[in-house]
């Protein structure tokens, strides 16, 4: 019955409470930026030491990986594959958020629809990502559409669960204000309804990004001829660990930057009124 527990991780109210406390934590983090930098340096040093000690081709030194990143960037191979992968992430993310939000709102709003779709949702939450990917490629062919659909399908159920929770928590008293003053439907939605859903949408977006960029690589590995996932597969065939680490580091860094430069400032702006 309880679907939330199937999605794993903390229950949503905890997530949202943690998010609301975030500003205080963040300022403390700002003061401790130095420690974070030191931690990063120690990690690199340990890596370097281990590589020098083992002297094996399966663990290249950090400097070798850095050199490879520069090399792959100059040949434009890395930026091209990265751009294609990010484009797929963006499309799958947008589709999953839009579709998941629409269904989540509808299920939170209408009890009978919720009952009707609940079984499908449990099924969707429990199908392994690999199965969806294989089936999409078999049914829709080895093309980009199938790839993006497969990724989106993996994410949509968790968006639905989160947004449905938000739709159930909508304050009917504020909706009555909108009704009493006969606000036009669009205003009612954008200025009274949506702001109440924002914390849930942000939670869905953040967990969505972290899930999607991992699944996209699998999709590319299984059925595309470009993108970071495809490249990783090629490196794997040649046992090129330096290449694998080079692509992985750059891709992870880009995703972290998106999170830090887009998601977090957006969230801060949307929740400014709480402080």
């Amino acid at each position: 019955m309880n679907i939330r527990s199937r999605t794993g991780g903390a229950p949503l109210p905890d997530l949202i409470a943690a998010r609301q406390q975030a500003p205080a934590v963040r300022t403390r983090q700002g003061g401790d930026a130095g420690l974070r930098l030191i931690s990063l340096l120690v990690f690199a040093l340990l890596w370097q030491a281990a590589a020098m000690l083992l002297q094996t081709s399966t663990l290249p030194t950090p400097l070798a990986v850095l050199g490879r990143i520069v090399e792959e960037s100059q040949s434009l191979a890395l930026p091209q594959h990265l751009a294609i992968t990010l484009w797929r992430v963006a499309l799958a993310f947008t589709a999953a958020m839009l579709i998941g939000t629409a269904i989540g709102i509808a299920m939170g709003r209408w009890r009978r629809l919720d009952l009707f779709l609940d079984g499908w949702l449990v099924l969707g939450l429990n199908i392994p990502a690999l199965v969806t990917i294989i089936l999409c490629y078999v049914w829709f062919g080895l093309n980009d559409t199938a790839a993006i659909v497969a990724v989106a399908i993996n994410k949509i159920p968790t968006v639905i669960v989160t947004v449905r929770e938000g739709a159930r928590a909508i304050d009917p008293r504020l909706m009555q204000v909108a009704q009493a003053y006969r606000l036009p439907p669009l205003t009612r939605f954008s200025r009274v309804y949506l702001p109440q859903l924002t914390p849930y949408l942000m939670a869905a977006a953040r967990s969505g990004l972290s899930l999607i960029w991992k699944i996209v690589l699998v999709v590319e590995l299984l059925g595309r001829s470009n993108g970071v996932g495809f490249q990783l597969n090629v490196f794997f065939q040649f046992f090129d660990i330096t290449g694998i680490l080079a692509y992985t580091l750059v891709f992870a860094a880009v995703v972290l930057l998106i999170e830090a430069l887009a998601m977090r400032p957006l969230e801060r702006r949307l929740s400014a009124w709480r402080n």
Binding site: R173, V177, Y181, R191, T198
Partner: peptide
């Protein structure tokens, strides 16, 4: 009763995410 109907509830019921002026401009 049409558009020019005002309603004041037991609680203020202001939109917490809108500033004072925006709350009034909303309607």
């Amino acid at each position: 009763p049409g558009e020019r109907t005002g309603f004041m509830f037991q609680e203020p019921r202001l939109m917490p995410w809108l500033s004072v002026i925006d709350n009034v401009c909303l309607v």
